[in-house]
Each structure stands twice: as C-alpha cells, then as structure tokens.
Design a protein around this nucleic acid. Sequence first.
DNA 1: ATATCTGCAAAGGATTTGCACGAGT
DNA 2: ACTCGTGCAAATCCTTTGCAGATAT
Lengths: 143, 143
Amino acid sequence: MPTPTHRLTPQRKVILEELRNTRSHPTADEVYQLVRKRLPRISLGTVYRNLDFLHSQGLVCKLDKAGSQMRFDAFTVPHLHITCVRCGKIVDLPAETATVKLHVPKDVPFEIQGHWLELFGLCPDCKSQSRNAGHGKHDHQTK
Amino acid sequence: MPTPTHRLTPQRKVILEELRNTRSHPTADEVYQLVRKRLPRISLGTVYRNLDFLHSQGLVCKLDKAGSQMRFDAFTVPHLHITCVRCGKIVDLPAETATVKLHVPKDVPFEIQGHWLELFGLCPDCKSQSRNAGHGKHDHQTK
DNA sequence: ATATCTGCAAAGGATTTGCACGAGT
DNA sequence: ACTCGTGCAAATCCTTTGCAGATAT
C-alpha cells in the first residue's frame, strides 16, 4: 500500500532511529531536539511531516490521548501505557497487564471496533514529593 | 474546598443549563454558540473560564482525551464513552458496560491510581456510508 | 469598599501549510 | 524533466491571560 516512490531520506532515517533509541514517548518537539543533534539544519515542520509519514507506514505510533501534546513511539508491539498524573511521564506495560471485558447492551447504536485503555498514577519521583494529593483531574473511573 | 464567595452568575447558570440540556458532549466553542443564543454578549473567554470553574466544582466533566479539542458534559455519574472513529460523535454508555481487570507486574515503578477506558467504533450514520474502511488511525488495542 | 466576574483583545503553544529550492530517479 | 522532500516562515486552531470596567455583598 505505500506508494513505491517514497524515499527513506536521511531525515526520516534519523527520526526513526532516535525514536527507536528511547523509551520515553517524546513529543514532536523533543524528537526535533534529539534529531537536531545529528541534523542541525532540520526543521520542526519536517519532523512533524515525517512523524506523520512514518505513522502512515505503520512504523511509529502516535499517542494522541496522552495529554495536550502528541507523543510518539517506535515500539509497535501492542502494549499499554501508564501516565504519571503529576509530571506526565509515560511508561510501557505489557498488554497482558489488563483485561477488558465488554458487556454491551443490545441497543447501543454503534458498531464497536475496539477500545483504548490507559492507566494513570504516580511515578516514583513524584510519589516522593507527594504532598498536595487530591486535584480531581480525572472525573470518571477514578476508582 | 470551594471558597464560599463564588457566585452563580447568569453566565455560569446558562452554561450549566445548556450543558445539562444536551447529551452531545460539546466542545467549548459549541457551548459558546449555544449560550450565545441566550446571552449574546458573552465571550468565549468567559465560557472557557466558567467551564473550568464548573469543572473545579465537580459540576461538569472535562473530556480531555476525546480528540484534539476538549469536550464537556454535565452528566457526572460515572459512565463510559464510545466515540465514532469517523465523525467523532460521542455517546454515553453505562459504567457496567466494561470491566477492567488489572494484573500488574510487581516491578512496575508506579503507584497506580486508576484507569481510563474508552470505546470506539462506527456510529449508525457513518456505518451506512462506510466504504473506505481501513484507515489505521488506532494503533494499539484495535483488536 | 472590596473581592469576584466579565468582555475584549492580545498572547500563547502546538500543529499545519504554502512556497521556492534541493535531491533522487 | 519530473516527482518527492526539505527548510523556512507564516498561518491556523484551540486555549489562556492581562486588563479595565462591571457586579454583587
């Protein structure tokens, strides 16, 4: 399905490599900063375009639900994420960490295709500084 | 916790009423359009400020993971959402529609506080027009 | 009086886009 | 030659903020 004329340019190669070298789910701007060390003349626009391109090729994942900014990773095996509610850090978890069972009422006017689950909590760093705990940022499901 | 000097101004009242009169999970701008019919001189900034205020009072929910824009609802009973991958429409589902079981490895360096689950699929309207199906927008968990 | 709110307009941050030049075939 | 990709800057979209005037107690 990729048009055969797409090229693996140096920019795309370096972006993918940098993404594969980190486990930190960087934002587009963070990718830009990383890549710039090796390609000082690259532009942020190119980074955005190529992250999109690599995403369309199935080579990187786009985490659009991770906060106000999009985050990316090149770890394409299905897995879960846990996000620190304080600092926003994201850590991978094996997919088997959670099981979701659906009991969908018959009358739901939707063809359900799948689900998206993410966990949230406090990372060790933020846990230690933890004083002002309750901030009510998550409404539902904060069981 | 709310300072006792907060007022229920006309703007706040109307915003809350409009939000309670719809099941459509409107964006801030959509709330603004609705409210403007009754308070033509209200500003978008006020709508944002008051949606935040009502959220801080626990009167409205802020759906920050529903897409690129924030969405709001005044239905504060815990429940789930299903989002149409085509048109973005959101529909409520009872909380019991899904059960999540966690089997968290001992070595996860996080204090898990909770989870967030959302469903996605095709709404009836989009289902009928459904021709160009596969768009690979969701990466993980698209079982 | 005084603290809270409002409307307005400007600023802000993240992402996308238009365009002319550069690179690969 | 021709298409695709890049850098740069400007534009866009959503949201937040500063400020001076208005409102309620």
